[in-house]
Simulated scan of single mutants.
Amino acid sequence: MTTATGLSFREATLADVAELVALIESAYRGDASRAGWTTEADLLHGQRTDPEGVAAVVTTPGSRMLVAEREGLIVACCQLEERGGVGYFGMFAVRPGHQGGGLGRQVLAEAERRERERGAEQMHMTVIVQRTELIGYYERRGYRRTGELHPFPYGDERFGLPQRHDLAFELLVKTL
Rank of each mutant, 00 (worst) to 15 (best):
L171K: 12
D31K: 14
R145G: 15
P96W: 08
I74D: 05
G136T: 13
L7F: 03
T132D: 12
G119R: 04
R83C: 12
M1K: 11
T60Q: 15
A32I: 09
E11H: 11
R116E: 07
R48E: 04
H150D: 05
G36C: 05
R114W: 01
R64A: 06
M91E: 04
I128C: 04
G119Y: 06
T13N: 02
F159E: 05
E71V: 00
A35I: 10
R114C: 06
P96S: 13
G97L: 11
G142C: 07
L43D: 02
E19G: 14
F152H: 02
G53R: 12
G72V: 15
Q106P: 12
E117A: 08
S33I: 14
A56K: 08
A18R: 03
A41G: 07
D166R: 05
P96A: 14
F89S: 02
Y143E: 04
R164L: 14
E11K: 07
Q163H: 07
S8K: 06
G90V: 10
T13F: 03
R140M: 11
G147Y: 12
F89C: 06
I74S: 12
L134E: 00
Q106S: 15
R164D: 12
G87Q: 08
T2Y: 12
G90R: 07
V129P: 05
V107L: 13
G46C: 03
R70A: 14
Q122D: 13
L167G: 13
I128L: 13
R145I: 11
T39S: 15
D16S: 02
L73E: 15
G90M: 11
E25V: 09
A22S: 14
V54D: 00
Q47G: 11
E82G: 15
E19M: 10
L171E: 06
A76M: 10
L176Y: 05
L171S: 01
D42G: 11
R10N: 06
Y143C: 03
R158I: 00
S33Y: 13
D50I: 00
R144V: 13
D156K: 05
A111H: 03
T132C: 07
G53L: 09
M1Q: 08
D166F: 06
V129E: 10
A12N: 03
G101T: 08
D50H: 01
E81N: 00
L171C: 03
V17N: 00
A27K: 04
S63G: 11
I24H: 01
P151R: 05
A120Q: 07
G160R: 02
A93H: 00
R141S: 01
E11G: 08
A76H: 11
T2P: 10
F169Q: 13
E71H: 09
Q79C: 06
G160W: 01
